[in-house]
């Protein structure tokens, strides 16, 4: 006969460390707003906002064309917070209940 398996030992006294914010999350939090007069130079290959949108008026320096904005898409991918995935799940639904985002099997 097979030997009886040993009792499963669970380490219950091990503390779960809260997730640490990533460097990118911290950078976003501590970064200051770029000022209009600073006229930042972007690295080669990146373009500045279309100056035609920023010639004056109340939104001077705060109007951004699509081409400028799209440059960030593949550059900044940090989650807003360490508990973001749980928040999305709680707010949008987990996908396995009716009325939530589509489940993987529904694709």
């Amino acid at each position: 006969p097979k030997p009886k398996p040993a009792h499963l030992k669970l380490e219950t006294n091990k503390r779960v460390e809260p997730a640490e914010p990533t460097p990118g999350m911290q950078a976003l939090k501590s970064a200051r707003f770029l000022e209009i007069k600073e006229d930042a130079k972007y690295p080669d290959g990146f373009k500045s906002p279309n100056p035609a949108l920023n010639q004056g008026g109340a939104k001077l320096g705060r109007a951004y064309d699509r081409d400028f904005l799209m440059q960030f898409q593949s550059v900044f991918k940090e989650k807003p917070t360490v508990d973001w995935d749980q928040k999305v799940k709680d707010t949008l639904g987990s996908g396995d209940e009716p009325g939530s985002a589509r489940t993987a099997s529904a694709r």
């Binding site: 950078a27 770029l34 600073e38 930042a40 972007y42 440059q71 900044f76 949008l92 209940e97 009325g99």
Partner: peptide, 30 residues
């Protein structure tokens, strides 16, 4: 000035929007 394009882990300036925005979601009724 270090933009996110220079270093996505250590940038020190970000680009302000003219307005603050809020994203909302309507959950389908269950």
């Amino acid at each position: 000035i270090i933009t996110v394009f220079d270093d996505p882990n250590n940038f020190n300036v970000k680009h302000a929007l003219q307005h603050a925005w809020t994203l909302w979601f309507t959950k389908p009724p269950s």
